[in-house]
Write a protein that binds this DNA or RNA. Sequence first.
DNA 1: GTTAGCATGTAAGGAGTTACATGATTTT
DNA 2: AAAATCATGTAACTCCTTACATGCTAAC
Lengths: 196, 196
Amino acid sequence: MSRRSDVLTLAVLGLLQDSPMHGYELRKRLSGTLGAFRALSYGSLYPCLKDLLARGWISESDQAAALPHALSGKRARIVYQLTAEGKEHFAGLLAQTGPSSWEDDDFDVRFAFFSRLDADTRLRILEGRRSRMQERLEALAQSVVRARERWDDYTLELQKHGLESVEREVRWLDARIDHERHAGTARPVEPDPHLP
Amino acid sequence: MSRRSDVLTLAVLGLLQDSPMHGYELRKRLSGTLGAFRALSYGSLYPCLKDLLARGWISESDQAAALPHALSGKRARIVYQLTAEGKEHFAGLLAQTGPSSWEDDDFDVRFAFFSRLDADTRLRILEGRRSRMQERLEALAQSVVRARERWDDYTLELQKHGLESVEREVRWLDARIDHERHAGTARPVEPDPHLP
DNA sequence: GTTAGCATGTAAGGAGTTACATGATTTT
DNA sequence: AAAATCATGTAACTCCTTACATGCTAAC
């Protein structure tokens, strides 16, 4: 059985949505492009792929060894691709707006795949995350007030730093929410000052 | 056996340095005052206490049931206190300046106990952490550059947000380092604008 | 008198890492 | 020809959470 963490499943299926990939490449993208999974080990990834294969969400690619130096019939690489059921399952997982989707890792991965969601679902996830962060903010603020009396300057400084991090996160979420609300009405695409 | 994570050991021994405490109280402080351990479960804490007891770093308090409603000889609470070996071990753990001390959780807990360290060790830990964050910054910056080409606006936004978080962390560390360097020379205590 | 909070613990299981084992391919 | 990197995988172990089991005390 070994029901792999849904968030890793989501990330892998999401990356395979773009193009088929082998494990080694997947790991690099997981570590690079998604905020979570800074350094996921192969000891986690390969068993997960095995699992997704067994559930029929991915399959070994029929395009055998299309991309690289195809010498003999030997292929060291195993290229995986999404199945139809895999695409379905990914869409279902991604659109889940329940409490799990406001947790740190889950939120990050979902946000990275936001372009695959409709505007309503995007907003619901952003607002859920915002209220989650607001809770955390209030708990921390209380804690800082108590820290003023009980603890030394270092502990207090640590608390304030943590508090400011969450405040920043809330402001960022506000900007994202604002963007979602106005994107459909005023300007469909935001002008990019960094264009060449 | 079951060598508990050193960082939890450090945190528990550090909190007991101030005053003896029972498990329930310890858990509240771990969740509140230290940045790490947002919600450590009893399923982790109590086995850890058992372990520290077996190693002789803490002992059940001789002051039996000093504080609360002492009715009969029955005490529901088990109050733990540091032993001499516990104090020694704590001091040794805390002063470790190796790579582990620049990891997220380890750093936070050590910083919270900075007042128990000499200025030199404080600086070494801060600088180690800073260079660790600098590395992370460079990796992320590269990743953002690559993201400009390959990925959509949401992924890019996520990357930028992560990058800015680490930049903020580096600036905070710079301020802490500066504070340590000047604390001994110019002003021993920083003036606090929040004083009543 | 019953709900809420205090207080301690255990067993099972989830999710990951480290270390190991193996071999192909590319670069120096 | 050696070293680095690509590539896949497994077994043992670590650390933590969840769910359960128990009982006391305070407040409503």
